Computed example of a mutant assay.
Amino acid sequence: MVETTKLIPIFITISSMFGGILSFYMMSDLPKEQRKRHIEEITSQLINFVLFIWVGKIIMNFTVFINDPLAILAYPSDSSAFYLAVLFSSLYLFFKSQRGQMNMMLFIQSFIFVFLIASFLYEFMQFVLYDNTYSVSYMVLLAILLILILTAQGRMGSHTLISALLIGWSLGIYFITTIQPFVTVFGYMMTPWFVGLFFAVSFTHLILNQRKSGYIERN
């Protein structure tokens, strides 16, 4: 019974991710071969992210890891490990993009779509299975962002759309924290400093892209 209880959250997360990837494959307007390549890349990065969470958990519990490496298995991954995994993943994608091994903007746009669908499915299952009422407000935010990405795709540049989605997500998370005690993303607590940093990076990217577009048009 205890083992089953531990496996349910893992099953919910994997099912949500699978649903997000399947939805992307069915709904994306990209060519079939390009969709497959994006799915392979997204799957690869999700595996890397899980590994980075483990690395983050080791870093945050380094003393325990040195004394008893196997004991680290008993420590649950907290938000700090999640934040470190986001940082490591961002750096990895940046360097991969700099080497010309991937189109960063196309990948991020595809990943955001998978993330939004997977997050919605995850929160929906949390609400149905555990009666988690805190999931409702986040589901509303995710639904709004999904409508935005589906209606604005093709009408808005990739840079602008990605910035708008990330800014909308961070502002939405901040608003939700004013009406309920906390917000979680796949079970990880979102703290104000992380959301604020996410907003600042997204807003800066939007401003720089707008200036770059304006400069190109003038020249």
Rank of each mutant, 00 (worst) to 15 (best):
S77D: 11
N67M: 08
L148T: 02
L142R: 01
S119V: 00
S89R: 05
G196P: 06
R218E: 14
Y25A: 13
V64A: 10
I176P: 12
L148A: 04
L46G: 01
I147E: 04
E33M: 06
N67E: 15
L46W: 05
H38W: 01
S79V: 06
S158Y: 08
W54M: 11
L116D: 05
I149V: 11
I12Y: 09
I112N: 10
P76K: 07
I21F: 07
T4N: 15
F95D: 07
M1S: 15
V64K: 13
F52H: 04
D68Q: 13
Y92G: 00
F111C: 06
M125L: 15
I72S: 11
E217M: 10
S89P: 08
D131N: 08
S158F: 07
V185M: 10
S158N: 14
A152M: 13
G20R: 05
N48S: 12
Y92A: 14
K32H: 11
E217V: 08
F49M: 12
L116H: 02
Y138R: 07
W193C: 00
G196V: 00
V2Q: 14
T160N: 06
I42E: 09
I147Q: 01
F88P: 11
V140W: 03
A118F: 01
S119K: 02
L22V: 12
A152S: 10
I12N: 11
H159W: 02
K212D: 10
V86K: 01
T43Q: 09
L22W: 14
H38T: 05
M190N: 06
I10C: 06
F62A: 02
I176T: 01
S16G: 09
Q109N: 14
I39D: 05
I144G: 02
T133D: 02
S80K: 14
M17G: 15
V64D: 10
F65Y: 14
M27I: 14
V86F: 12
M102C: 05
S90F: 11
T133M: 07
